[in-house]
Amino acid sequence: MENTGEDTTPGRVDSARSDTLLAVRAGEGDEKAFETLVRRHTPVLLTLGVRMLGNQADAEDAVQDAFVSAWRRLPDFRGDASFLTWMYRIMTNRCLNVLRSRRPTEPIGPGEEPSAPEHQSSPVKAAEGAAAVQDLTGALATLSPGQRACWVLRELHGLSYREISEVLDISEQAVRGRIFRVRRFLTEAMSAWR
């Protein structure tokens, strides 16, 4: 049943297995089983939302919408992918829709910073490191939503190519190609910090 990733660390397998059981129960209408899943996975999906959408409020709305959508679809969930991969998929698609609906009104060009993400504005690090990360954030903002999703899932969430291909419904080969191009784009964008 846990066929979704190369990650075979015991903890990961256990939690996926238990997810599967809970997802089956939730699909049969057990809302308490669903609540366990919601509380277990809300933090990581919130992080994904902030990384994709750039602010906490939009991320919270997207996670909420994703879980409500999941509740409605669970009767058809057959466990071909792990529950978490399935949630990544619903959540990522939510974020892509939000980003696309934003784009006409919020053009983001290279070098400009129209809306600094909330989590970036906290004074955490030394100025230079913060500025470089700001540059990284700015460079990421110029990516297409699909490219950004690929890169965020791989580099910030550690999903395997195969998992990403399931999340985005594209081939593994396409995922590799896209991540390579984003990496090259970002290394060029960050080369000033060498």
Binding site: A81, W86, I90, R94, R100, P145, D169
Partner: peptide, 17 residues
């Protein structure tokens, strides 16, 4: 598959694969 197909309506930006 049926389980994955319904997700594409949520905004798969590459449906023509």
């Amino acid at each position: 598959g049926a389980e994955s197909a319904d997700d594409t309506s949520e905004g798969n930006d590459f449906p023509a694969r």
